[in-house]
Structures are given as C-alpha cells and as structure tokens.
C-alpha cells in the first residue's frame, strides 16, 4: 500500500472542519426567525399563538432536539404536531441542534 501523502490527509481534515463549521456556527437566534419558529412559539419562546401550543423557552436542549427530530421524521405525530411537521423540512440536524441550544437560553 502506498503511503498517503500527509498533505492530502491535512487537506481532508481541513475540508471536514470547513464543512462542519457553518453548522457549528449556525446562529440559533437567526434560525429561530428565518425557519419561522417564532411565528407560532412567540419571539420570546413563551407567547405561543395558540394556548394549545407549548411555551418552549428554557427547555432542556436534549428534549427540544428530540421532539424536533421526532416530529420531522413522523415518529411523533400526535396532538398538534401536524402544524409543525409542515415546516420541519426547512431545518437539518445541525440547525435543529443550534435551535435547541438557543431555545434553552430564552
């Protein structure tokens, strides 16, 4: 087996970091607006448009993230989750993570 050029390895590592960076740097506050979360849950995460929608401000990020993932995949389809399912294609895994972390700070 030919030894792999260390420069190629470095470049590959750099590329993977660069690919991951936008996600890590994703601005949760910005996503909360552009992905339309605030329209239902309120700008502060505690003034939902319907009394039957949850206040999410301060929620544990692991819990928020799991709910988002489950609603997106359809694993959770009960209650009023159909309303949120309609927009979940707008966010990927990294964006959901950034959102969950942002919501926890509200």
């Amino acid at each position: 087996m030919k030894p792999v050029n260390p420069i190629i390895i470095s470049l590959a590592m750099l590329a993977s970091i660069m690919l991951a960076t936008p996600a890590l740097a994703a601005d949760g506050a910005q996503l909360y607006k552009t992905k339309t979360c605030f329209t239902c849950h309120g700008k502060d995460g505690k003034t939902p448009i319907l009394d039957t929608y949850p206040k999410i401000a301060g929620q544990n990020p692991a819990y928020s993230l799991q709910q988002m993932k489950d609603i997106k995949s359809g694993a959770r389809a009960n209650g009023l989750s159909a309303a949120m399912k309609g927009v979940m294609h707008l966010v990927n895994d990294d964006e959901m993570k950034a959102l969950a972390e942002y919501i926890a700070t509200l």
Partner: peptide, 13 residues
C-alpha cells in the same frame, strides 16, 4: 385543511 396556517387564520391572529 392546513394545520400550519390554521392558527394564523383565526380572528385572534
């Protein structure tokens, strides 16, 4: 039927 839009069509909104 439009669950996402529904609350925004209500008089409250």
């Amino acid at each position: 039927d439009n669950p996402t839009m529904y609350p925004f069509a209500l008089p409250r909104a």
